[in-house]
Simulated scan of single mutants.
Amino acid sequence: MPNNKKPPVHTVPNKAGGWDNKQGGKTISHHRTKARAEDQGRQEAKKDKTEHRIHKRNGQIGQSNSYGNDPYPPKG
């Protein structure tokens, strides 16, 4: 069975200002605010049934949400 899983969506700060959503190394959207970028990134991740990773201003991942088959579901 082929693996058609899409790469995660990353919401990341843009060096020139604002925030970008990237998937598979390509910018899929640009936004003035982090909140708008998060909303759009969440929609893309849900549509593609993949992960949404929200980065902090310093580039570190601050939050990660799964909208597909989570390889590490919570226990209990």
Rank of each mutant, 00 (worst) to 15 (best):
T11G: 09
T11M: 12
V12G: 00
V12W: 01
V12L: 07
N14I: 03
K15F: 01
A16S: 07
A16V: 03
A16R: 04
G17W: 02
G17M: 01
G17N: 05
G17D: 06
G17I: 00
G17Y: 04
G17S: 06
G18Y: 01
W19C: 00
W19K: 01
W19V: 03
W19S: 01
D20V: 03
K22T: 13
K22C: 09
K22H: 09
K22S: 12
Q23K: 11
Q23Y: 10
G24M: 06
G25S: 01
G25N: 04
G25K: 00
G25T: 02
G25C: 00
G25A: 00
G25R: 02
K26D: 12
K26M: 09
K26T: 04
K26E: 08
T27W: 02
T27Y: 02
T27N: 01
T27H: 02
I28C: 00
S29R: 00
S29K: 03
S29Q: 02
S29P: 03
H30V: 05
H31P: 02
H31D: 04
H31R: 03
H31V: 02
R32S: 12
R32K: 12
R32D: 13
T33M: 04
T33K: 08
T33E: 06
T33C: 06
T33S: 10
K34Y: 03
K34Q: 06
K34C: 02
A35P: 08
A35F: 05
A35N: 13
A35Y: 02
A35M: 06
R36S: 09
R36K: 15
R36M: 12
R36Y: 13
R36G: 14
E38V: 15
E38H: 14
D39H: 11
D39S: 15
D39R: 11
Q40E: 08
Q40T: 14
Q40N: 14
Q40C: 08
G41F: 00
R42T: 10
R42E: 13
R42Q: 12
Q43P: 12
Q43M: 11
Q43N: 08
Q43S: 08
Q43E: 09
Q43W: 08
Q43K: 14
E44P: 10
K46N: 06
K46I: 06
K47H: 13
K47C: 09
K47E: 08
D48Y: 10
D48M: 09
K49Y: 13
K49L: 11
E51R: 13
E51F: 07
E51I: 14
H52Y: 07
H52G: 05
H52A: 06
R53N: 09
I54N: 05
I54H: 04
I54T: 07
I54D: 03
H55V: 04
H55S: 01
K56F: 14
K56Q: 15
K56D: 09
K56G: 12
R57M: 11
R57I: 11
Q60I: 12
Q60W: 15
I61Y: 07
I61T: 15
G62K: 10
G62D: 05
Q63M: 15
Q63Y: 11
Q63S: 08
S64T: 10
S64W: 15
N65M: 10
N65R: 11
S66W: 10
S66T: 13
Y67W: 14
Y67H: 05
Y67T: 05
G68M: 09
G68R: 00
N69F: 11
N69Q: 09
N69I: 14
N69M: 09
N69G: 13
D70Y: 13
D70L: 08
D70S: 08
P71I: 10
P71D: 08
